[in-house]
Design a binder for these strands. Structure first.
Length: 462
RNA sequence: GUCCCGUUCGUCUAGAGGCCUAGGACACCGGGUUUUCAUCCCGGCAACAGGGGUUCGACUCCCCUACGGGAUGCCA
């Protein structure tokens, strides 16, 4: 049995895309569960659109997710020689020919075909012309005209294509540079790739690539075409309908593990289990069980998954993850008297780290803005607040239990409703009516801070 | 247009001819806990695209239609 080798082959024409992450993940997991290798190959043959910046973004993000390739990634842009050699081999074997059709001519041809209701495709007009190489000729593969190619797909089974549906694709451009199909096939062979796991949008490329393999005498590969990740408009996820780059999700405060989890569950499931970590995926994932239909990426499921992954973190881990998000708000996470108590009581307040950070802001900084509606509803005049301040000021033993008892006594004695007592204090402390239990919230601040905040609200009321 | 792939609750999915009165999760709605918010717990709503076969029996198998997506580049 040959060692399984998978690869993720992005072209660096944009930041690491969430759909790309899923492709990489499935490649990684499949390699791991077969004790094989996971490779990354940068397909930067399009010199116009490829940038080093994007390449670095892809590589860095991949490794931050833990999808680390087992070998140093290679760049196709540095391997022209190998591809050209392969192209020459195909030419020598008689399976390729030079074609001098201009862009205009080809466009005209396609228009005519379309007008006749035919599939626009190169008609092979230069095939038997015996042209030789020039700066105006491209090298085309002589695709078999009859018969069919069968793609054996791990997810979809056999897919058949008639050879007469396939036109003679370009191997070498007129400037001599190799094209995607050639490079892709050659590198899969050169890197001993055994299994190609990629997006469904490549299905129709597969028979063409198989023809190149055949012309080169390469062994056949295993294929798995993944359903596409879709936006809510049912079209492939694009900037038009959602955040597409991994970076954007990280910046919003989604955990790597949660992102991976939600991507894995898109198109695949295992019983009733929803929460997965990478090691569990490696144990339980089955490529054959992947769904065939495209799947809409639902942010609310990610939100929930994120909350699950967040709650599975220890307090220390959680604080580490939160730290940079607070820093973005100019907050030093340790700059609070009761950091651990505060963070622990607030960690379920929102689903994302950025959301939690925002919710934490009033605990670290003075209240900039009070919820005026809440003030209107719960604070008729400041006299009660003044009264409560005195009450709290008299507490010597400043802890949650004592505070709660004092407030309860006051509330019962004066026959007041709980909100009538609690909400004014809460608004003083955090600016709104949202906070953990009041005794807990008060004890998170020290007595002086708490009284100060009450004073601030009193003076705000004027 | 042509070729290819697909189609179960709003969304992700379970379902390999009787186990389906179609299960779970998210979302949503209602209730409980917290007399705030969030968490948590309980409950509810909600789907086999349509039509033909095959079969004693079809979500499951076959065909057609419809719809959706992908591909049709000297992009990858």
């Amino acid at each position: 049995m040959k060692k399984v080798i998978t690869r993720f082959a992005p072209s660096p024409t944009g930041k690491l895309h969430i759909g790309g992450v899923r492709t990489a993940l499935f490649n990684f997991v499949y390699a791991r569960q077969n004790n094989g290798k996971f490779l990354v190959r940068i397909e930067d043959t399009d010199k116009e659109r490829s940038t080093k910046e994007f390449e670095n973004n892809i590589l860095e993000n991949l490794s931050s997710l833990g999808l680390v390739p087992d070998e140093e990634p290679i760049n196709q842009s540095e391997r022209d020689e190998i591809y050209i050699k392969a192209a020459e081999k195909i030419l020598e074997s008689g399976n390729a020919y030079w074609c001098d059709c201009s862009a205009d001519e080809l466009e005209k041809m396609r228009k005519e075909q379309t007008a006749l209701g035919k599939k626009p495709m190169y008609d092979g007009r230069s095939r038997n012309l015996g042209l030789s190489r020039s700066d105006k000729t491209v090298l085309r593969l002589a695709t078999p005209e009859n018969g069919e190619v069968i793609v054996n797909d791990l997810i979809r089974g056999e897919i058949r294509f008639n050879n007469n549906e396939l036109d003679d694709l370009i191997l070498l451009r007129s400037n001599g540079s190799p094209t995607y199909h050639l490079c892709n096939v050659v590198d899969d062979y050169e890197q001993s790739v055994t299994t190609v796991i990629r997006g469904e949008d490549h299905i129709s490329n597969t028979p063409r690539q198989i023809h190149i393999q055949n012309a080169l005498g390469y062994p056949s590969l295993e294929y798995a075409h993944l359903p596409l990740v879709l936006g809510t408009d049912k079209k492939r996820l694009s900037k038009r309908n959602a955040a597409t780059s991994l970076e954007e999700y990280k910046e919003k405060g989604y955990l790597d593990t949660a992102i991976l989890n939600s991507l894995a569950r898109l198109g695949w499931s295992q019983g009733d289990k929803e929460v997965f970590y990478l090691d569990e995926l490696i144990k339980e994932f089955k490529l054959e069980d992947v769904q065939k239909a495209g799947a809409i990426f639902d942010i609310s499921k990610l939100d929930w998954l994120n909350s699950q992954h967040l709650s599975n973190l220890t307090l220390d881990e959680f604080k580490q993850k939160l730290k940079p998000f607070l820093k973005n708000l100019n907050i030093d996470i340790e700059a609070h008297l009761n950091v651990d108590k505060l963070i622990e009581s607030m960690r379920t307040s929102e689903n994302t780290l950025s959301g939690i950070s925002a919710a934490l802001e009033p605990y670290y900084k003075d209240i900039k803005m009070y919820d005026e509606k809440a003030i209107e509803k719960f604070i008729k005049d400041k006299s009660r607040l003044v009264e409560l301040r005195t009450l709290l000021n008299d507490i010597d033993n400043w802890n949650q239990e004592t505070i709660e008892n004092v407030l309860k006594d006051f509330q019962v004695k004066n026959e007041l409703s709980v909100p009538a007592v609690n909400q004014p204090i809460r608004i003083s402390l955090v600016g709104s009516t949202k906070s953990p239990g009041l005794g807990l919230t008060l004890s998170i601040f020290d007595k002086n801070q708490a009284l100060k905040r009450i004073d601030n609200l009193i003076s705000h009321l004027g």
